[in-house]
């Protein structure tokens, strides 16, 4: 008797852990974007969550079009790309219109991007309504696989995990192999000298900001497979995303990865053991405690400066 219940318990725990994987994946995509923007230009983008929502709404719009055309089976991968482009272009414009005028003024950028987030939320409300929307998803993403007795692992979780893995690998590759990545790493170490050796640092800023927002857009598209989207969906995720970035150490991609995993898993498993808000409080307290011991985050670069 007690054996079956403990088996059931572990099966549920495993499934809950898998729910944590989906959360981890979305957090990871969000945190990557936020971290590369912060690393490049020291800007904390309070509107990052709304760029995620832009990605979700883009997916929603495409799903409506796709169902009219009967393309429901194939539209989803394209919506990922579209979400990236739409959020990226929006980010590019925001950088040109607002952000670049506020460099070296961290408090002003914080306030300004917070304002942008409110404006965007209101635009979502006017265009899509206050009710949450969900894109119609293709059948293949809605199923589940059963690797063992009583264990149900949803395909959407696997899909989102694979996506986050691919995107992370792509960003890492760009960061360490591309000209853009080299210029980002140089500029974030010494902006003035980077300019003096010939790097157009403002161009790098624009591209980086657009890319970071584009990544939030992809996170938003992925997000539609695990929850529905409302005008304030983005703002619900922004705090967790900040937590991931700070906890992982803003300068380290491995740190971001590890901390997204820890926080995603901790939240999801704790939510199973206690109420949702208690789980959040416990995660927050733990992270703050660890940060008191390691103020620079989990991972930092080891080099003489």
């Amino acid at each position: 008797m007690s054996e079956t219940t403990s088996a059931e318990f572990f099966a549920t725990l495993l499934m809950q852990g898998f729910a944590g994987i989906s959360l981890f994946s979305v957090l990871l995509l969000m945190a990557l974007g936020l971290a590369i923007i912060f690393g490049q230009m020291g800007v904390i983008n309070m509107a990052h969550g709304e760029f995620m929502a832009i990605g979700s709404y883009t997916t929603y719009i495409l799903s409506v079009l796709a169902s009219e055309q009967g393309w429901l089976d194939i539209y989803f991968p394209f919506s990922l790309i579209a979400a990236f482009i739409v959020a990226g272009v929006a980010g590019y414009l925001l950088e040109i219109v607002l952000i670049r005028h506020l460099y070296q003024r961290p408090l002003d950028t914080l306030l300004a991007t917070w304002g942008v987030s409110l404006i965007l939320q209101q635009i979502f409300r006017s265009v899509f309504g206050a009710r949450e929307v969900s894109p119609e998803l293709p059948e293949w993403i809605m199923g589940s696989v059963q690797p063992g007795e009583g264990i149900d692992i949803p395909v959407n979780g696997l899909f989102v995990l694979g996506l986050a893995g691919l995107v992370t690998a792509g960003v890492a590759l760009m960061m360490f192999r591309s000209r853009w990545g080299l210029q980002v790493r140089a500029t974030s170490q010494n902006r003035l000298i980077a300019g003096a050796v010939g790097i157009d640092t403002q161009q790098v800023d624009r591209i980086t900001f657009a890319l970071g927002c584009g990544l939030a857009g992809v996170a938003g598209a992925a997000f539609t497979t695990i929850a529905s989207t409302g005008p304030t969906s983005g703002s619900l995720y922004i705090v967790d995303t900040f937590l991931v970035v700070v906890f992982g150490g803003a300068a380290s991609m491995v740190g971001t990865l590890a901390s997204a995993f820890t926080i995603g898993q901790a939240q999801s498993i704790l939510e199973f053991l206690m109420t949702g808000s208690m789980a959040k409080v416990l995660t927050l307290v733990t992270v703050v405690g660890l940060l008191m011991m390691r103020p620079e985050g989990l991972f930092t670069a080891k080099v003489r400066r």
């Binding site: 080299l182 000298i193 300019g195 003096a196 010939g198 640092t201």
Partner: peptide, 30 residues
């Protein structure tokens, strides 16, 4: 600055100010 470099000026600052966490080759490639 970067335009002056494109026009043909190059600068070696006092105290070197290389990029410490970049490799030697990456430093040159900047």
């Amino acid at each position: 600055s970067f335009r002056r470099v494109r026009h043909g000026l190059a600068y070696v600052p006092q105290g070197r100010l290389i990029f410490p966490t970049l490799t030697v080759e990456e430093n040159i490639r900047t």
